[in-house]
Design a protein around this nucleic acid. Structure first.
Length: 731
DNA sequence: AGTCCCCCCATTTTT
DNA sequence: TGGGGGGACT
């Protein structure tokens, strides 16, 4: 077969990576250097040039979205389906292993997945039963501790303890939590990886089977792997299997949740024969943007070293705007997006990036004011929404009555007279009998442990679930979903809440039925043991492992708002980095340590390298945060960029103010630009191509950075930057 | 049982 | 400033 087409469109290092025969291969892929392309072409190469069977390939990513994208890109490149290939997330693939080998993994056949919300509730319950002071040891902290240990591959039993209060308490909770999970047949996200890893270590014949099968392993975003994920990979790859890991140490921004950049260096230690390929040619950004990114990231000490280059255009200068406050910043950004849109571009090619979610509010306000469509990433994803979780809990109870987490969630939603007193009694019975809440409910009813009113309520609940089960038994998945949302009373419950929110909830519940209907059509993988794993259970697994997109509608042309973290992997023609202020970005919580600061810098690097054509930076001199106004200094990252690439838009040069410490910003990065005095005067009548005619009310600053306030006849008063606004002087 | 109020908190997020 | 959670009150 002629396979040259697979390599044709690639540059030299990319080809080297794609067709590389080395057993272990480390690809250091800079931002925009065609990382996904290399992965996709590599799979195509294996299959077509080396006649590798899809059954022998395993490709792993971090998010479901990335996995789906990789799969579909390979399919469209090859023009064939990838039947038998394992493409998925660490969690998704591990989960598959555990379903297939539940017995050897020491799990119940009908084990179910505990997501972080369930996990937190469970820990809260445990802490109450252990009489742990919630003020001193918040459940959140315990949860964090447990997850961090699991990410490191540590179980409660393996952790050294130095008799300190903290570790003692945490271990206590961890131990009780492990017991509760085992008793209830539950595994959390960390446990999925840990179990799968242990499954291999404890069952050499199972490991041998998979090692034998997956001769070719590909790993995306390797810099984001944590200890257990890397251990998982090492075990599976063994000494002889081929493994290609792709990553960029400069884009490691998840250290705070256990990701270890050191895994990249460690890869060289563990596999000394590994070949390293660097992808440094960038196909995304202008050379101006790349130079800025390179200069910034050079300030980090611990790097493997890599310099992006492009043979593309220099492109436009980077613009820096110093705003008075966060409102001014938002207004400026929105005005630039309007310009962009009015010059014939799509809003969806522009993105506003910020360090923390709280910053989105001002931006949203400003966007709403000019009625510009926008889309925000982040916030509650589909399967995380309250009403959806409630509905899923009912479905979970159909699958497994002993699912305490699900029962706790919906036993009194909608309200059916089972209050906290009643629940306490039930919990106590469950604890005393060491049984599930469901059984405790039955016992309470049968043995009259409750007053008659409560007993009736509990009995009604038990019957409701049994009836739902019976009615759903023969129904298709989507009909099951439909049946429970109506007959559990959830729809009515949310309907009677009233208001816009309630309507959205009801819509979401209906959307769940659609999701279930689509799931009916999903083809099951050949490895899946369908006998024990009904469609409903599989649907619930999927809901836990893939929380769904925040918003599905891609249709309307909207400007995108997101945190820098969520921007990783994306690219936009026009990018705004907002809120470049010390304490906000770099964030004050991370500024204290070198490693924290370097991660912030990488985050900034990620932000800059999202831009293809034009980059705006902005900061505010004062910002309202947590209800009080604070004076801000510009971020040190601004000063780390090459001055000659930056055009500063200073509006306040006529206003004197105390210097604020940062030396590089205050006086203008380019020196102040010499410009003739403006010809506008107060009261002057002017024309604007979009807003029409108006009268100059006020002005600030001078030169191209000056702003004027114009009261337009039709659209009212607006502040305009002279150099952008192209105002026409009218007689 | 449900509502209301007060207090506390406040990066980043996937699975 | 504002959201969420927990406790107290009706």
């Amino acid at each position: 077969m002629d396979v040259s087409h697979i390599l044709e469109s690639l540059n030299e290092p990319q080809r080297n990576a794609v067709a590389n025969p080395s057993q272990k291969l480390l690809v250091l892929a800079g931002a925009g250097s065609g990382k996904t392309r290399v992965l996709v072409h590599r799979v195509a190469w294996l299959m077509q040039a080396e006649q590798v069977s899809p059954f022998a390939v395993l490709a792993v990513t971090f998010t479901n979205k990335a996995a789906r994208e990789m799969r579909s890109r390979i399919e469209s490149l090859l023009g064939q389906s990838l039947h038998g290939m394992w493409v998925g997330t660490f969690h998704g693939l591990s989960h598959r292993l555990l379903r297939a080998h539940w017995r050897e993994a020491g799990l119940a056949e009908d084990f179910h997945i505990l997501d972080s919300d369930d996990q937190l509730r469970l820990i809260k319950r445990i802490n109450r039963s252990l009489h742990i002071d919630e003020d001193k040891w918040p459940a959140k902290q315990c949860q964090w501790y447990i997850n961090a240990q699991k990410d490191e591959g540590l179980r409660a039993g393996n952790i050294e303890h130095f008799d300190d209060d903290y570790t003692k308490t945490m271990l206590n909770v961890y131990l009780a939590y492990e017991e509760a999970c085992n008793r209830g047949g539950m595994i959390d996200f960390g446990e999925i990886l840990l179990r799968a890893h242990e499954l291999w270590l404890k069952n050499p014949q199972i490991l041998a089977h998979y090692q034998n099968r997956f001769q070719h392993i590909l790993v995306d975003e390797f810099q984001d792997t944590n200890a257990i994920q890397y251990a998982w990979l090492r075990v599976l790859a063994g000494k002889t299997n081929q493994m290609m890991v792709v990553g960029d140490d400069d884009q490691s921004i998840y250290g705070w949740r256990g990701a270890k950049i050191e895994n990249i260096q460690q890869f060289n230690v563990d596999f000394p024969d590994a070949e390293i390929v660097r992808l440094e040619q960038n196909y995304r950004s202008t050379s101006t943007i790349l130079q800025a990114a390179n200069k910034l990231i050079a300030n980090n000490q611990s790097r493997l070293g890599k310099t992006l280059w492009t043979d593309g255009d220099k492109g436009e200068q980077i613009s820096l705007y110093e705003a008075f406050n966060e409102q001014d910043e938002a207004r400026f950004i929105v005005a630039r997006v309007e310009d962009w849109f009015n010059s014939g571009n799509r809003r969806s090619d522009a993105a506003i990036l910020y360090r923390s979610n709280a910053q989105s509010r001002e931006l949203e306000d400003a966007l709403l004011r000019v009625a510009m469509p926008y889309r925000i990433y982040g916030g509650h994803r589909f399967y995380e929404r309250l009403e959806i979780r409630n509905a899923l809990s009912y479905l979970r109870l159909l699958v497994n009555r002993d699912d305490d987490t699900a029962l706790e969630r919906v036993v009194n939603v909608p309200a059916r007279g089972i209050g906290s007193r009643t629940l306490d009694t039930i919990r106590n019975v469950a604890r005393a009998q060491n049984c599930s809440l469901w059984r405790a409910c039955t016992k309470c009813v049968n043995e009259s442990l409750l007053n008659s009113r409560a007993a009736n309520a509990v009995l009604a609940f038990l019957q409701l679930i049994d009836n739902l089960q019976e009615a759903c038994d023969e129904l298709e998945l989507h009909a099951k979903a439909e049946h429970i949302i109506t007959h559990s009373g959830l729809i009515q419950h949310h309907e009677k809440e009233g208001g816009e929110k309630a309507r959205a909830r009801v819509e979401n519940l209906e959307e769940l039925v659609t999701a279930a209907r689509n799931f009916d059509r999903v083809d099951f993988d050949e490895d899946f043991d369908l006998k024990s794993n009904t469609l409903l259970a599989a649907f619930l697994d999927q809901a836990a492992l893939d929380a769904g997109d925040t918003q599905a509608d891609e249709s309307d042309d909207a400007i995108q708002l997101m945190t820098l973290h969520s921007a990783k992997g994306l690219e936009f023609q026009l990018v705004f980095l907002a809120g470049l202020e010390e304490g906000l970005f770099p964030h004050k919580m991370s500024m204290g340590t070198i490693s924290g600061l370097e991660e912030e810098r990488r985050l900034c690097y990620v932000g800059i390298t999202r831009a293809k054509k034009k980059l705006y930076l902005s900061y505010a001199e004062s910002r309202r945060l947590h209800g009080e106004v604070k004076l801000c200094r510009p971020s040190r990252f601004i000063g780390e960029l090459p001055k000659e690439l930056i055009d500063e838009i200073r509006l306040k040069s006529t206003v004197s103010r105390p210097s604020f410490g940062s030396t590089r910003i205050g006086k203008g990065l380019n020196g102040n630009v010499e410009v003739p005095q403006t010809e506008f005067s107060l009261g002057q009548r002017v024309g604007h191509n979009k807003f029409g005619e108006g009268v100059v009310l006020n002005y600030e600053g001078q030169g191209p950075n000056a702003r004027v306030q114009v009261n337009f006849d039709t659209v009212g008063s607006k502040w305009l930057v002279l150099s952008y606004a192209k105002l026409e002087v009218l007689g």
